[in-house]
Design a binder for these strands. Structure first.
Lengths: 198, 198, 198, 198
DNA sequence: GATGAATGAGGTTTCATTCAT
DNA sequence: AATGAATGAAACCTCATTCAT
């Protein structure tokens, strides 16, 4: 019998890889790189640990792959603001809601873990530095500036305002990820107040 | 040489213990419990790793001790608001500044680590649950309510407002701890806007 | 397409087997049994590692097959002396040259590896023991004895002389196999001097 | 009770290190680097495998340490010829005997293993290249040249002669190391005949 | 016959913890 | 009280082998 053809193999590879990435994201984001054992990821993905190494050379490489995805995803999320409808403030509200709602929370956690801990692969740190806050600020800057002209957005240095907005947003993602009992997402209104000003 | 008397021995013991706790806090808060090796703590404290075990039965016990201190310290910080001068808003501003300035940041990090990770000793989780957000909210509640009466503080459910305030505050502590390049503490004004409202 | 007939299939099978054996010899002889991975052999043979197991039950079996070939080949080389032309000394010179020139060097290496290492399959050790030095000595004995009678070959116990001759010959094969920079084949003359004597 | 003083600790360290090196030499030289498991060395040394890593960072490092020793030892052996008594030929005979007798055989095996196999740490290969055959030849050259002047040593290119002598000597060390049944050390006389010529 | 995905035993290495001194 | 040698459980990773296609 003929072996599987290229397309089938490719598909299997992609599926497995996706399956592993999903499992790894779940575990890494909750336990950090040091607290995550490869066996946990294998169990979560429902495969043998040996197979992990068929797809990723090492724990570090797997972690780096996730960080890369996360950074690209975050960047895409910021870019999505340009496709939104309505006034600048509407766009910002909508983006805020999307991010807080979004299933991307584990990715935020992951980045947090990567940024926090000192036992993280150098490559991951580089990736994070490369997609720095600045690149996100740049994406949002036109919308905030427009909002300031219409008076919907609080006056003042827009870069500082966006930095603050993103900081708090990140923080909330992180806090909510863990523990829904002790911390609550501040209602959108309260958060928006930061942006709109008095 | 005359042997040290009991009191002197006790003092040495306490000093050593303090020295270890300080070192452990530094390392645990930056690397999490899984990412921290006992040898790192020993090196940071400038002692042999063997000696750690004269003062703490295990890594877990040491971690728990730190969590306990952190929770008590945080609680004390909240209580300190009652001793502050001025209007309710002044008090909140002052507390905010104190916390963001404070050297207690590693403790915040530690609590975050303990809350986040699933590889944390059960006892530590219990401690954190015990000093829950609720106990902090209770401490601040009278001040916020007074502020709402004078109109300095935004109207609405004060518990929700305080929760939001504390969430963001915690988050900012955490973010700032790691990486002062990419995230900036939102200037006090912007943060306060959350609280004062339009 | 008409299916291949039995003979053709058999031929393909034999060719593949030969291809694998050749590749395995190359790798085993250079890296030893423990240092050789099945994937190396597969890569060298240009086939998938899965296919190896259609032709050889296990790594050990493959190794044993090679050892068997090597032993038979070495024995044949010794026997070839009887077909050579000229005086006994001519024959020995010619055999020496043939062996040192010969492409059979990897087989010598392999035998060396098998003899050396303690992690070798028992069966391989038995094979080597079976075709012991003695059987080679026996093959050469008549030629050396004849040489001693004509005075071309140094006097003394011919068995000891042949043993010495074979020892050095083997050793040189091995040394030369690896590293042509640091060791040189002693010129035939020098080697022959061992045999001819003063 | 006071901890051990520096001298005692140093002594323990040295003893253990020696003990490990001795065990490692025994196993590496017989099985090669790939065929040797750290657990084998630990067992041979009568210690836990964990302790191996207290003294050597890795299997490779341990192997490299041994190669270094071997190369230095071999070089020293060659140098020792200058301290010997008698005519040049006496010196060479004595050196030959010393080397063949010597307990340094495992080191020869080790170098052989290191030179042979392709799975050897780069650093080990460099060490071997550095102490190449040439450096040994240089050491023996004056003695051989003197011998040629007195007529005790065969005429001809002395470098070639020494290379041949060393090649055969090495080969014999290797062969004898493994298998005393099948190969015999050619008696000193036969070997010497190579050097003295007809 | 042929492929490569999949498994798991086993090897290397790390590190919390114990213990003799 | 203090040190660092020593242990061993457990983590990471490799690779011989099996198996579905």
């Amino acid at each position: 019998m003929a072996p599987l053809n290229d397309e089938q193999l490719h598909q299997i590879r992609d599926e497995r890889k996706e399956q592993i990435i999903e499992a790894a994201l779940k575990v890494f984001s909750r336990r950090g790189i040091a607290g995550t054992k490869m066996s946990m990821i294998a169990a979560e993905a429902g495969i043998s640990h040996g197979l992990l190494y068929h797809y990723f050379k090492s724990k570090d490489e797997l972690f780096i792959t996730l960080v890369q995805r996360a950074m690209i995803g975050a960047h895409d999320a910021m870019k999505s603001i340009h496709g939104l409808q309505g006034s600048p403030l509407d766009k910002i509200k909508c983006l805020t809601k999307d991010i807080l709602d979004e299933s991307g929370r584990p990715y935020f956690m992951l980045i947090y873990q990567a940024r926090t801990s000192e036992g993280v692969p150098e490559k991951a740190k580089e990736l994070i530095a490369q997609y720095s806050l600045k690149s996100f600020v740049d994406e949002l800057l036109p919308v905030f500036q427009e909002g300031q002209q219409t008076g919907d957005i609080a006056a003042g240095d827009p870069v500082e305002l966006i930095s603050a907005y993103l900081s708090v947003l990140s923080s909330l993602m992180i806090l909510n990820a863990q523990d829904e009992e002790n911390y609550r997402i501040p209602s959108g209104d309260i958060l928006m107040r930061m942006v709109t000003g008095p």
